[in-house]
Design a protein around this nucleic acid. Structure first.
Length: 771
RNA sequence: GGGAGGUUAGCUCAGCGGUAGAGCGCCUGCUUUACACGCAGGAUGUCGGGGGUUCGAUCCCCUCACCUCCCACCA
């Protein structure tokens, strides 16, 4: 830590060093001690309530960013607070294999070596990913230790561990046997760059303001004006297999029962009547039907028994089916070329501006292509229904509560979940195919087809969506489906804390999976915290406003980072973290440090005793104890409601403004002792000690390191604050009268201080102060 | 096209039926038995606009404006 440069005056260096504290000097020490003494493992008197959380497993590729820092700090606050309350706390750590994300990282590494994944082959590639994981993966877990997270490392899990893989397979097989997992040809969201299907949630829509709507004239023999269709994606016309009209639209009456000719291709297209696909009030009343590249068109094709022709391949290039002229072209080049040809043939009737939104791949931002392919799905409605009910019945509560509505509206309109991914890294789908085309789905690799007994089985090459395994996390970490002691003792968990951005991806799916597979809601409380913004903006590297939690820990200390995060964590959708909050939090830690130095100085080596003597308490003593009691009540009641900001601000105000600015200043004359009665001095000292000890305890969940460091100095016991009982309000300390009358006393003390500082000297011990 | 949230001090945000709050910033003093990452004091708000309910509204209701974010297969 740099030396202060503000004060021109010099003091002896030994004293100066003591004024501020150096977090690096003790953070590591305390963490190591807590860990080696097993403080992070569940303990406590038999029969005491347990309190269980699972970490939202960060990607193995992850580095700790400020969003993680927030969520994990909030969890750690809860864990430490409950532990101090005497509960058997278990907080399970682990990481997620993160299919696409990890595969991309390793592919990028390979690319640097000029190696292509496909050239390497599946097996070698997977080996390579494991090697990468072993070496570089999970760095984030080390970083969580620096944050102070009291995770039980003896129970660390990885979503691709043997146990968890077994859970995934069990879940898949069970859903299949229940008819809730099926394989089908369907138009899915396809990312041509990643070369895989993705779920609806993995598609992000961006506005396209310069979008165009192209009106194309198709010839219709017998109808002079032909048919004009409008489309935003003209290249898909090469895959048209019909035109559709609404049966009751007078505009298109004359097209009924006729055929159209597909421009550029010459294919004859039936004109079908489809009141579901065609909106009478929209456009020209004629819709081109491209079953392979549009989900609505595909549905229409099924209703009308139309063929589907795939014209855009999995790599985003036009297939041979698109015709020799276009085959091999990238889809966007093909669009240009199609438009050129249509213009040349004078078939482009009109081009209008048509702003709209286009789906992009969440991972790589490539434009998503609707693509007809054979995929695995989870039939979701039967799973959603009980999940909705669990929330309706109050078995699961969201905090802030407003998320409940969002949850319902998503769950009530949920669509089947595409779970197969054309990737290599992940849980391989336990489906096996024989030459006859039969499917065998089984937990153990089958040796023969379950239908025909043929031996040469091929396993489905695809892997499962990474979220398929994460949805099992709250119970798979405990060994499910085996009936382990941990599963019996620690499942269901109590609270889940995460950002609202993965409410659908993860939280909703865990609820569905938990209820379906275990019959129990996986947790009873969900706290959805906001997303961290810096200076009002979403953090981004290009804007340079990223706060790196590790750098913040280096500069301000882990305690300051944690306190800044908790005090900013209100229940709104954004958590605004500014640099000055970090500095302010560090100042608070320093304040506490110095107040402790002062207090310890009053004891000169003796250890302060326990409770203050009740006989000789004076007004300031009764006041501060009353305030302490209120603060203790307030902190817990705020934490019950996940109001971390209010809880931390309560302690801040108590420690700084009441204990330091108020009590210590009022009591200094009594402590100096020359004029004060010994029992007065003693009462002041013991009250001070009590307040300090309880402040440390109240603050420990938020600032575990400094408080533990001071605690050792105060009590002589190393690393025990973490298991010291959390302060509770005490009826016998509550003293409303003292709270009222102390105002006058504080004002008096201030006046005397100011009087002294104005005169440079003054009455050292005014009689009034000996109150 | 639906839905949610926001608009409070210069900045970032709490609050919420009964004389407006915090942190940071700003101004004025200050070598005070710890702390200048400090102490004491101070300034600053028609609590987005307009209506309504109420004895009383920043807070409840309606409405308008502007912002943010989610969800959505309308060519």
């Amino acid at each position: 830590m740099p030396e202060r440069a503000t004060s021109p005056r010099t003091e002896e260096p030994s004293r100066r060093l003591e004024k501020t504290f150096e977090p690096r000097a003790f953070e590591e020490r305390w963490y190591a001690l807590w860990e080696t003494e097993g403080r992070f493992q569940p303990s406590g008197p038999a029969g005491s309530p347990r309190y269980v959380m699972v970490i939202p497993p960060p990607n193995v590729t992850g580095r700790l960013h400020v969003g993680h820092a927030l969520g994990r700090t909030l969890e750690d606050v809860l864990a430490r607070w409950r532990r101090m309350q005497g509960q058997r706390v278990l907080w399970v750590p682990g990481t997620d294999h993160a299919g696409i994300a990890t595969q991309m990282v390793v592919e990028r590494e390979l690319a640097k070596e000029g190696v292509d994944r496909k050239a390497l082959g599946r097996e070698k590639f997977i080996e390579r990913v494991w090697a990468w994981k072993k070496e570089a993966g999970g760095a984030i877990l080390v970083q969580l230790r620096r944050l102070g997270c009291s995770l039980d490392w003896s129970r660390e899990r990885f979503t691709l561990d043997a146990d968890l893989s077994r859970a995934v397979r069990h879940a898949f097989v069970r859903l299949f046997s229940e008819g809730l997992v099926y394989r089908d040809r369907y138009v899915v969201n396809w990312c041509p760059r990643c070369g895989t299907a993705v779920s609806d949630l993995e598609v992000v829509h961006h506005e396209v303001k310069d979008g165009k709507l192209y009106h194309i004239r198709y010839d219709v023999p017998g109808v002079r004006s032909g048919a004009v269709v409008a489309t935003t994606r003209p290249e898909t016309m090469l895959g048209d297999t019909a035109l559709a009209i609404h049966p009751e639209d007078p505009r298109t009456e004359k097209l009924k029962g006729r055929k159209a000719t597909l421009p550029l291709v010459g294919r004859t297209l039936p004109i079908v009547e489809d009141p579901i696909l065609v909106d009478r009030a929209f456009g020209t009343g004629v819709v081109k039907v491209t079953p392979a590249h549009d989900a609505n068109d595909f549905a229409s094709a099924q209703r009308n028994e139309l063929p589907a022709i795939v014209v855009i391949g999995p790599d985003g290039r036009m297939t041979a089916e698109a015709g020799a002229e276009f085959a091999g072209l990238d889809r966007l080049e093909a669009r240009k070329k199609v438009l050129e040809r249509l213009t040349a043939e004078n078939r482009l009737a009109k081009v209008e501006d048509y702003p709209g939104s286009v789906g992009h791949c969440q991972r790589c931002d490539t434009i998503i292509e609707p693509y007809l392919s054979l995929q695995w799905f989870v039939k979701i409605a039967p799973l959603a229904e009980p999940a909705i009910r669990a929330v309706r019945e109050g078995k699961i509560r969201f905090a802030p509560e407003s998320w409940t509505k969002t949850y319902y509206s998503w769950m009530e309109n949920i669509r089947d979940w595409c779970i197969s991914r054309q990737l290599w890294w992940g849980h391989r789908i336990p489906a096996f195919y024989c030459d006859e085309g039969h499917v065998t789905v089984s937990e153990e690799d089958p040796s023969a087809c379950a239908t025909c007994g043929k031996k040469n089985l091929r396993q489905d090459p695809d892997v499962l969506d990474t979220w398929f395994s994460s949805q099992l996390w709250p119970f798979s970490v405990f060994g499910w489906p085996r009936e382990t002691p941990d599963l019996a003792e620690f499942y269901p968990t109590d609270v889940l804390v995460t950002g609202y951005d993965i409410l659908f991806f993860w939280v909703a799916r865990m609820i569905m999976a938990g209820l379906h597979f275990t019959g129990k809601a996986p947790f009873h409380d969900v706290h959805l915290h906001g997303l961290v913004r810096v200076d009002g903006e979403k953090m981004s590297k290009t804007k340079g406003n990223v706060i790196d939690p590790l750098e913040a820990i280096d500069e301000f200390g882990a305690d300051a980072l944690r306190f800044a995060l908790t005090s900013a964590a209100s229940n709104g959708p954004t958590v605004s973290l500014e640099k000055h909050r970090l500095a302010g939090s560090r100042a608070f830690a320093t304040k506490l440090w110095n107040a402790s130095r002062f207090a310890l100085g009053q004891f000169e080596g003796e250890r302060p005793a326990g409770d203050p003597p009740s006989k000789h308490l004076e007004l300031p003593d009764r006041w501060i104890l009353s305030r302490l009691s209120s603060a203790a009540a307030e902190v817990s009641s705020r934490l019950e409601l996940f109001r971390f900001d209010e809880a931390s601000q309560t302690i801040y105000a108590f420690v700084w403004h009441e204990l330091c600015d108020g009590f210590i200043e009022m009591v200094k004359p009594r402590l100096s002792g020359t004029n004060a009665a010994p029992e007065s001095r003693s009462a002041a000292r013991e009250t001070l000690a009590r307040c300090l000890a309880d402040s440390l305890a109240l603050l420990h969940p938020f600032m575990p390191f400094v408080t533990e460091e001071i605690w050792e100095k105060l009590t002589g016991r190393a690393g025990t604050l973490i298991v010291t009982p959390f302060p509770r309000p005490r009826a016998e300390w509550s003293d409303p009268r003292a709270e009222k009358s102390v105002e006058a006393l504080r004002a008096l003390v201030t006046r005397v201080r100011n009087f002294r500082s104005e005169r440079g000297a003054g009455p050292t011990e005014p009689a009034e102060l000996a109150l």
